[in-house]
Design a protein around this nucleic acid. Structure first.
Lengths: 125, 125
DNA sequence: TCGCATCGATTACATGCGTAGTCAATGGAG
DNA sequence: CTCCATTGACTACGCATGTAATCGATGCGA
């Protein structure tokens, strides 16, 4: 569960994804990785790293002159928190209306359906 | 689908919920209804209504000296957009990992599971 | 040893958001 | 007809965010 104190902003999340992919990394490494998704200057990435540090969402260990950054929050925990928050805000905490919603928007592939069936089968045992 | 142009903020969403519950309503009506959820002054609610108007998310028809506000976006459309956005951001557009996630957090009740099975059954036909 | 490249830290600045006070107009009570 | 309560409009203001430039320290090549 590991409660996330401060909120992770949209831009910060991009940086987090880079760190979740691989860690620890130097600021420059993160910037390079982020460059694939966003055309940001290195400075921007460093600012975001600082803000994430201030929020205790990541930590850094000194390595000579530079720092090696690593996440303090597991992606799964973050994702669980966000999913739960959305489900609470929009569906009164119930998940099935969400699925129904996505289904009605034709956002479920045959593969999704098969996987959902597997999940349900597992839950019933 | 009715694309939502501007983003609805957290506070604005509270106002929208009041309008989705019942519409049209005067600003004071909305404020009263919102009071159940948040301890805001009438002015705050009016400001939020103005911002929602500016974003074309709601509209107002004059009724004598006051206005009757009504949503221009259906709740379903909004909810679909938000759900889709979350699923894209966090699950690469796949819904089953979301359900798996919630399942692993024990956030699925027996009722949810039954309903999900029904939904899936409906989809396969 | 001297200057440059590089690193993290600090500062910047426009925009959006949360929360609310104040103002000008106006409809209704007396 | 006068005054007050109510309404929408405008203004305020501090904090978060997105995006970045600049600064001071420092390790490394020449």
């Amino acid at each position: 569960m590991a409660d996330i104190g401060d909120k992770i902003s949209e831009a910060e999340l991009v940086v987090m994804e880079a760190l979740w992919e691989q860690s620890p990394q130097t600021a420059t490494d993160v910037a390079d990785r982020v460059a694939a998704a966003r055309d940001w200057s290195v400075q921007t990435v460093k600012t975001l790293l600082s803000r994430l540090m201030a929020k205790d969402i990541i930590a850094a260990d000194q390595d000579g002159r530079r720092f090696l950054y690593r996440p303090m929050v597991a992606r799964d925990d973050y994702v669980a928190g966000e999913s739960g928050r959305l489900v609470n805000r929009l569906f009164g905490g119930r998940i099935s209306p969400l699925v129904a919603q996505l289904a009605s928007q034709d956002q479920l592939t045959a593969e999704d359906i098969a996987e959902l069936e597997d999940i349900l089968k597992g839950l019933k045992s």
